Amino acid sequence: MTPVLHHRIDGPPDAPALILAPSLGTSLAVWEAQAAALARHHRVIRWDLPGHGGSPTSALRDPAPGATTVAGLADLVLDLADRLGAPRFGYAGISLGGAVGAHLAAHHPERITRLALVCSSARFGDPAAWRERAALVRAQGTGPLADTAPGRWFTPDFASTRTAGRLVDDLRTADPTGYAACCDALADCDLRSELHRITTPTLVVAGRADPATPPAHARGLADGIPRATLLELPGASHLAPAERPQAVLDALLGHFAAPAGDGGRYTAGMAVRRAVLGDAHVDRATARTTAFTADFQDYITRCAWGEVWTRPGLDRRTRSCLTLTALIAHGHLEELAMHLRAALRNGLTPDDIKEVLLHSAVYCGVPAANSAFATAQRVLDEDGAPSS
């Protein structure tokens, strides 16, 4: 009997199953930053590719050059799911792991409840390049690739971190035969003509600094899959779950917790919320979320940010002006300070903000405007923005 893929299970045994798939060269550890949070409400199943992490290369039916395909890897995942009693499951995969998920959604739609494709593609470039890489690894091992992996996987600022180093170590210890077989699968992969068959709600996540699967690849997936939502993450390269862990977690939590008919509002709302308020603020708000406040945070993200701020009728500068005026009128100075910073991020200058505050003095009252000017001066001073 073919060995089962090495895997790890976290979360309640009776919770909905969520399978997390790695990228070529990594192990199930690539999902470490998201696994615990996702396991609160899912039975999270992480697995290793053949020859990677704890999965033996012998998990492949035939590791000979050219024999391994994405369809064959998908069969291994179905076998794992069957052995674990998961007839239906959500699925999120990075790069090659994402391609496996796309194949499953196209050919086994009855098994997939929701799909997330992270830094992935329908076609991974020139097949000859993958065959050359497979031949190199079969001859010399994974060492030469590990030496150059940081430039393909991470932005320069992240490449020297401990997390990056551990992921590169996974590549160094990968079995050359298993790794090369997975290269063969990428060489053979072309899902472009099958994307229209994917009917499950799909989230596509791209790293804007990803040289391996650039954002154009993600847009191709989102354009080809009828019910897809696209999220592009700034400051992320190919292994976005490692480099932008909270942003990826927020997107996955929203996508896999979203009710039918959500239409991607949570994901779109979280993207706008981060763009307007900044990652640091949203990360702090997320970290402070408790069971008592979780529903309110979900409501804010879906409704305020996912339904109103995403509408096309007004640009973000105008929405900031309206928001500042409403907060001044109601005396919500703490929220005003937050949205003053957001207004600067949305392109308002200090002079623009001054005009909004002067205008509000006429229609909201001088005392309210006086407090608003004091708050604005403090924010401008703290942020180092010129006030004249």
Rank of each mutant, 00 (worst) to 15 (best):
residue 288 R to V: 00
residue 190 D to C: 10
residue 34 Q to K: 03
residue 22 P to E: 01
residue 18 L to A: 06
residue 56 P to E: 05
residue 364 C to T: 13
residue 120 S to P: 10
residue 135 A to R: 14
residue 11 G to R: 12
residue 334 E to H: 06
residue 354 K to H: 15
residue 254 G to H: 12
residue 2 T to A: 05
residue 29 A to V: 06
residue 180 A to K: 08
residue 325 T to H: 02
residue 172 R to Q: 10
residue 189 C to P: 07
residue 195 L to W: 14
residue 247 A to P: 04
residue 99 A to M: 15
residue 120 S to V: 12
residue 334 E to S: 05
residue 259 P to H: 05
residue 101 G to F: 12
residue 308 V to C: 02
residue 201 P to H: 09
residue 278 G to I: 09
residue 76 L to H: 11
residue 52 H to Y: 09
residue 370 N to T: 14
residue 294 A to V: 13
residue 365 G to T: 11
residue 113 T to N: 03
residue 203 L to H: 12
residue 45 I to P: 05
residue 379 V to T: 10
residue 340 L to P: 02
residue 305 W to N: 03
residue 72 G to D: 08
residue 215 P to L: 06
residue 9 I to H: 07
residue 33 A to C: 02
residue 47 W to V: 02
residue 298 D to G: 00
residue 156 P to S: 08
residue 337 A to P: 00
residue 129 A to M: 08
residue 211 P to C: 05
residue 17 A to D: 09
residue 43 R to H: 11
residue 164 A to Y: 14
residue 49 L to E: 02
residue 327 L to Q: 07
residue 322 L to T: 06
residue 280 A to I: 06
residue 73 L to S: 08
residue 331 G to T: 00
residue 137 V to P: 03
residue 24 L to E: 01
residue 159 A to D: 06
residue 305 W to F: 13
residue 102 A to P: 05
residue 292 F to W: 12
residue 129 A to V: 14
residue 86 A to I: 08
residue 327 L to K: 09
residue 80 L to F: 10
residue 128 A to F: 06
residue 129 A to H: 12
residue 1 M to T: 14
residue 238 H to D: 07
residue 24 L to V: 07
residue 247 A to Q: 15
residue 123 R to Q: 14
residue 92 A to W: 13
residue 382 E to C: 00
residue 47 W to C: 04
residue 204 V to A: 06
residue 267 T to N: 04
residue 11 G to W: 13
residue 199 T to Y: 01
residue 231 L to P: 00
residue 238 H to F: 11
residue 227 R to H: 15
residue 196 H to S: 15
residue 12 P to A: 13
residue 10 D to C: 12
residue 225 I to T: 13
residue 349 T to P: 06
residue 377 Q to K: 12
residue 132 E to A: 15
residue 245 P to I: 08
residue 365 G to E: 05
residue 332 H to D: 03
residue 372 A to C: 05
residue 225 I to E: 01
residue 47 W to F: 15
residue 62 D to Y: 08
residue 132 E to T: 14
residue 298 D to E: 14
residue 140 Q to D: 12
residue 251 A to D: 01
residue 363 Y to C: 01
residue 121 S to C: 14
residue 93 G to V: 13
residue 148 T to D: 04
residue 336 L to R: 04
residue 193 S to W: 07
residue 120 S to A: 14
residue 42 H to F: 15
residue 328 I to C: 02
residue 342 A to F: 09
residue 363 Y to T: 09
residue 92 A to M: 11
residue 26 T to A: 09
residue 254 G to M: 04
residue 307 E to G: 00
residue 179 Y to V: 05
residue 185 A to S: 07
residue 351 D to T: 15
